[in-house]
Simulated assay, not measured.
Amino acid sequence: MKGHIRERSPGRWAIILDSPDQETGKRRRKWHSFAGTKREAQKECARLITEMQGGDYVEPGKETLAKFLERWLDHMRSQVSPRSHERYTELARKNIAPLLGNVALTKLRPEQISAAYSKALVSGRRDGSGGLSPRTVHHMHRILRQALSQAVKWRILGRNPADAVGGPKVEKTKMRALDAHETAQLLAHFRPTRMFTPVLLGALCGLRRGEVTALRWRAVDFAAGQLAIVESTEQTHRGTRAKETKSGRSRRVALPSIVVDELRRQRVRQAEELLKLGVRLSDDDHVFAQADGMPVQPNSLTHEFTRILAQSSTLPRIRFHDLRHSHATQLLSSGIHPKIAQERLGHSSIGITLDLYSHVMPGMQEDAAAKVDAAMRAAIDRVAG
């Protein structure tokens, strides 16, 4: 197997590869176009020969990255949730394709991808108002890398060019956790509103937004003082759909007595509202619902929480999800074992809990060291005595 280069015009080269046909034994010639210096063309020729000898060679095709992404999106429709597929589609069509879509898939190079990311950070907004955030470009990189990995599996590419590119550094979003006093103030502010129950469930039970909007009365066990978290809701362009929890597993959450009391009051209020409409409340109804009993969309919950919170001049401006962080922080700060916190929050592993809330651990480490020290000193004194 051999190859050579031929100059077509200044800076333009033809790379000619000769290899025997496996069936007939006759010589087959493959042509590649290359732009660059003579030395670069020679390196590319050597690289292609190595690929052919190693069995990694892929015939050059004319399919562009944009067309391939559409095929990949069709493939991914059955692999991810509808909301995730919508996000993949948005990133692929609106962010990646305008920058790299016209490049032939088999000719896509790491330096082109890197340059596209740099451009996106500076002027990637579609309205021309500036660049995209590092987090958005990081998501672009993750999607492109996943798509090109599939191209390798389909043997369209010999290797994934995105593997040689790093996404931009993304700073972690700082979580704002309320302490017990701030939580009490927040509950007092929301008590006169319909949003009181979601805020209660988020701040005192650590429920996610989708878990709150999916919760039905049949999941509330007043006798045992527990909630059964078995599903969540997801909002897409086509509407709201029920889905499994984020971890893929159901869980039971023990309720503080204050939450049990407030849920009893909520059930009575909701039953009275529906009775005025001639409807009887059932265990299939949602705990947090509109006045006519219809479920609330997750995005509507977020918007209403933000609107009502803005009416306070003293409470910090937090996200609804920060109520969950507040609950976790208060649990760990109170000395609750991280494993219990993990089960209560519904994390798939204790590693996630420890990673998210490591900032709470230093005080717990000091407390543990002090307890070990006290126990050992007492034991040493007994032995010495």
Rank of each mutant, 00 (worst) to 15 (best):
S349Y: 08
G363L: 09
L148T: 01
K62D: 14
S349D: 12
T64H: 09
E59R: 15
E211G: 04
Q150Y: 10
E262G: 09
P161H: 05
A120F: 02
H32L: 13
S358E: 12
G293C: 02
I16F: 08
K107Q: 15
G25Y: 09
W217P: 03
A379M: 10
E273Q: 15
R269L: 13
A115F: 07
L157T: 01
L157C: 07
S149I: 08
A41V: 00
L144M: 03
I5T: 06
A223P: 01
T193N: 11
T37C: 09
I308P: 00
L345V: 04
A164R: 14
K243E: 09
L91E: 01
T314Q: 13
G210H: 04
W31T: 05
V279W: 09
N160V: 06
I380W: 11
C45L: 13
D56Y: 14
G206P: 01
P316H: 03
R208N: 05
I350H: 08
W154H: 04
S118F: 05
A120I: 00
L200T: 04
P134Q: 05
D179S: 10
T245I: 10
L255K: 08
G206W: 05
A384P: 04
D74S: 08
V199C: 07
R307N: 09
E63Y: 10
L263H: 10
V372K: 00
E51F: 11
R319N: 07
L201G: 03
L178E: 05
L69P: 00
L69R: 03
N102W: 12
V259Y: 10
L157W: 03
V80P: 02
R142C: 12
W13G: 02
T233E: 10
K339C: 05
P198S: 00
R194E: 14
V212C: 04
Q330K: 11
Q266M: 09
A328S: 10
R269Y: 13
I258S: 15
R267G: 05
H189Y: 05
K371D: 07
L227N: 10
L73M: 01
H32D: 06
M195L: 15
G278V: 06
L157H: 02
G166M: 14
P362C: 08
Q185Y: 12
R194Y: 11
T353E: 10
Q42M: 12
L275K: 13
R249G: 11
G131I: 01
V212R: 00
L148C: 07
F190G: 03
Q311H: 14
R47T: 09
T183R: 15
G351D: 11
P20I: 00
A177Y: 14
R12P: 00
E90S: 12
F222R: 11
A219N: 14
E304L: 13
K107I: 06
I16T: 04
